[in-house]
Nucleic acid binder design. Structure first.
Lengths: 211, 211
DNA sequence: CCTTCTATATTGACAGTGTCCATATTTACC
DNA sequence: GGTAAATATGGACACTGTCAATATAGAAGG
């Protein structure tokens, strides 16, 4: 029997799971996280409202799946940026990582927001955890190459500090928390540049900086 | 006529707005943000499902009102912590601010999460904006007292960097992003202490740190 | 005191949601 | 080919936010 009924749609979509993720990310980008509902996606794809349940049992599972895709995207962007720079064991490798993350977050603010709202995701999902660890490992590699452990601050401390600062800035900028009393430029330098200079200062030896 | 009808409830609650905020924060703390629904609160307070609409037209407005209360709490906690230290123009004033914020976020993780999700709030609400500016001004005061402007990094740069780092760390810790590959202690020092030492390093003159 | 106006609360309705259920179809495998 | 698993369907339930029309309370002024 043919797989297409009178209404012109197949009983089996055949490729529903990836299609769901694709449409979900599109809706996320254009209309925000609240607009991403299971029924909405089903409607969009012309399947029954309950069809997605076979692939994502709950909405949380759907968001988790979306986040995994996004983490892969971000990771790839970081990798590419570092490859373009050349030797990854260089100070500019950190800058490449910084720029790539900043760029991804500003290009896809809604994705970035969702990716780090682990309270709304399946935080115990191993796929999510391994992806975060990949990002962390890449950052640690940068730390090891720019200075190495310091008697004052270990690589781990500096890595967490760096990531915290970058992430905190991203979140406040995306959410709009940093808008009112803040300026876009500081001493004529774009704010992101000033922050990166400060990040670099963080990763350098305190004694080696004084000149 | 008496204000209490047969069912034992008054037609006018009389104090609905603050009661809504109180119960809402309680639900937020114990069951998370998703559990905070207008109808739920109305049920909890024994009023009609549509009664809250007189005080908070939409759910967004309700969350905004809750956030304002929380920002006042946090601001007060910061103020108290700095007063306990003594002279606010001291390096330990920054530490007091750091500790107070850290403590508030860890005591009320769900409140902290909500307060900075401005995408889910009325970001154009002036009450919200003035409260954020108060926090920022307090931080800038700390910057001015510990070192002052540096040829390398302005007070504003350092303030944003500090706040970003603290906020990013808080968010990732609360959300559970920092759990898997991260350790609670670094070189035998609690992670929060190590981060504060690094924050202090940020606020100090680069030349004055080398010993 | 009585009237009037405003603030507040009520009930009802609508569309949307997540999630479960029993059922139907398709695909894959033995 | 026949059987089991994967996938899709439609119905149901309880919940949500939001709007509209209505009713009551309190406050203000004659």
């Amino acid at each position: 029997m043919d797989t297409v009924n009178i209404e012109g749609r197949a009983y089996h979509h055949g490729d529903l799971k990836p299609s769901l993720l694709e449409v979900a990310l599109q809706v996320l980008d254009t209309e925000g996280l609240e607009a991403v509902s299971i029924r909405r996606l089903a409607r969009e794809l012309g399947v029954a409202h309950s069809a997605p349940a076979n692939h994502f049992a709950t909405r949380k599972d759907l968001l988790t799946g979306m986040a995994e895709v996004c983490f892969d995207e971000l990771s790839l962007a970081q990798q590419r940026a570092q490859d373009d720079v050349g030797c990854p064991r260089d100070e500019s490798a950190l800058k490449a990582l910084y720029r790539a993350t900043l760029n991804y977050g500003l290009c896809y603010p809604n994705r970035y927001r969702m990716m780090f709202r682990w309270g709304d995701l399946n935080a115990e999902d191993t796929g999510l955890q391994t992806r975060i660890e990949i990002l962390y490992r890449r950052l640690m590699q940068c730390m090891a190459s720019t200075g190495g452990d310091t008697p004052l601050f270990s690589n781990e401390t500096r890595a967490i500090a760096l990531w915290s600062m970058l992430h905190g800035y991203m979140v406040m900028r995306i959410e709009g928390t940093i808008q009112g009393g803040f300026h876009d430029e500081i001493n004529g330098m774009p704010r992101e540049e000033a922050l990166f200079a400060l990040l670099t200062h963080l990763t350098s030896e305190p004694t080696g900086f004084a000149g």
